[in-house]
Nucleic acid binder design. Structure first.
Lengths: 347, 347
DNA sequence: TTGTAGGCGTTATCAC
DNA sequence: GTGATAACGCCTACAA
């Protein structure tokens, strides 16, 4: 019924050479005369031969499969996370690797052990990294090669690609300062994200604090639930605390909507009365809002690609010394929309 | 350095049984006495044994890996697609399968052959299905088990889970008719999506046409590029053609923003002067707009899960007769937002 | 109920 | 340069 796929031995017979010669011809592990190689290639062609990945992996100690570890956060993944994944998948494919999408919950470290113990993957790319991440510890001691999108507090010799939150927050503030704002608030992710040490949340908070101080700015920061209502409430509270605030930096796509609602309620228009700069929001999201949000757009796809490339670099030099890790911080790109404008003269 | 993982033979020795007994105990292919089984389990536990997936696959003819085939459309994937993927990955994990994320471009059928020929996957789940889809043909004749999220014009005996566009468009129209609208337009995806036979585009067009006729409605439909500008232009044209139009059904997250801009320009307010119902848009998107869009939210995660389940059903009964396919159409859920209201009395 | 042996399709280590 | 032939780790008739 279903044709049985040709094996290497079939190719060998047809080309009238030994099985091993075919293998060597295939992955150039040893010199093969041009004519022999030609015959082999022709035989493969005619038979429609495809090497069996499983057998290769079993015998060769390399599966060409890597895993993308992404814990599903409370309320689903966003556009940015999707772009990590597609970037990673793309890069993997380009290098002849397969990418397994592994929804590894933080809680069940067990599942991670399962995955790594199966001998199925050559390495892993860890997403949604926390300041102190169990998965990272596990991979480390399991001796599984891996790299990260994001980073722990002490990345050591692990390769990673992360957003440069220090610079990103600084850019956001400089943009606003350039527009004359002197009192700027910051709306971050949820308290729970902060307390579990979610990297972006923690680093953006630090970055903002530092950048605001450096700019000699009056500022106020606040964690905020990932919902419209929370954003609305947070704005009102911030305003109560700091009535002279004229702009807000927001890293929370849900909450920012609530902020705009709140502004509407009190009759303030954006950007005439108040400015908003979104951080690490995809333009795919900010372009849906009115006014279109000014954002510092993260290089998501690139981060995904980079993460994979770093991992593969490591794998390719697995034999020999452990290759110095690549650690990269990428800046976000300022995309000026209609939500940021000159500070109002007075209030 | 790195501890060598225990093999089945190690477990056998430690439990003082034959290698095969361990194997049978593991996958219950044959009865094993309780005491023996206990000893074996204890030995596995103590050794931290994990069966090698590659070896299992090679010998057993089942890899427990499936592939998710998703061509990356022109301008990236949206939230809905991400939910397909996470739903699928979740379901796969629950059933002990791994999910390979395979960005198979439509153009390079070659890559698909590569993937299937490697003997790596047990089956595939096809996303972004077109009315006439090369990948489907290929999988069919390659004898690879697969199911679809979406469907071709002639699914035959292939299992699929798809959105019920017929019902969805009808629901959209009924919602508007219930509000008194008598002239309703439809803004679809891009012309190119239609011309290549992208399922949702084609089926929603048909569905809308039929539902509008059935409702005795004046209506007008139009394809529209996936951009704000295109949406804006399209609205103006529709209005020129059909000045009495009081509502629009839109299946195009980018364009809908343009429509709202256009309404703003001419001073029409939503929903007082004009109503909008979005189709197959995630609430994650519609909730960012002001007013919040009324939408028919697709059961994306569920579709992903269903697709995987169907595929696995098929795999489990691969031996024996070919199990009748499961073919399911799921409705979207009407989520009323602030973009749809009573038809204006006059204009 | 338990044990034995022959694959599964490659890679890699030997000789020649 | 090229050929045999062990592994790789597990599954599964087949025999006991």
């Amino acid at each position: 019924m279903v044709a049985v796929p040709p094996r290497m031995i079939d190719v060998a017979k047809r080309a009238d050479v030994a099985l091993s010669t075919v293998s060597y011809a295939l992955n150039g592990t040893r010199p093969v005369s041009a004519s022999t190689r030609r015959r082999i290639l022709r035989a493969m062609e005619e038979l429609g031969y495809r090497p069996n990945a499983l057998a290769q992996g079993l015998a060769g100690k390399r599966t060409h499969i890597i895993a993308l570890l992404f814990p599903t956060p409370e309320r689903g993944l966003g556009v940015t996370e999707m772009e990590f994944a597609t970037g990673a998948a793309d890069a993997a494919r380009e290098h002849g690797y397969h990418l397994i999408l592994s929804p590894s919950e933080l809680r069940s470290v067990h599942e991670l052990e399962q995955l790594t113990g199966q001998g199925l993957i050559d390495g892993a790319l860890v997403m949604e990294v926390h300041i102190d991440d169990e998965r990272v510890n596990l991979l480390r001691q399991a001796g599984i090669p891996f790299s990260m999108i994001g980073r722990t507090s002490d990345p050591g010799a692990i390769s990673y690609a992360d957003i440069d939150f220090e610079q990103t927050t600084r850019d956001a503030i400089e943009h606003l300062v350039g527009l004359g704002h002197r009192s700027v608030g910051f709306l971050n992710h949820s308290p729970s994200a902060y307390s579990v040490g979610y990297g972006p949340t923690v680093r953006a908070a630090e970055g903002f604090r530092r950048a605001a101080s450096a700019a000699g700015l009056a500022h106020l920061e606040r964690l905020c639930g990932d919902s419209v209502a929370a954003g609305e409430a947070a704005f009102h509270e911030l305003r109560a605390t700091s009535p002279d605030m004229t702009a807000l930096v927001v890293m929370n796509d849900r909450a920012v909507v609530g902020v705009m609602d709140a502004l509407d309620e009190i009759g303030w228009r954006v950007p005439d009365h108040f400015s908003i700069v979104s951080i690490a929001s995809s333009t795919q999201v900010t372009e849906m809002m009115r006014p279109k949000l000014t954002t510092l757009e993260p290089p998501s796809t690139e981060l995904g690609r980079l993460g994979v490339r770093m991992l593969l670099d490591q794998l390719d030099t697995k034999d020999g010394e452990p290759l110095s890790p690549t650690q990269v911080l990428l800046p976000c790109r300022l995309v000026v929309g209609g939500s940021s404008g000159p500070a109002p003269a007075s209030r």
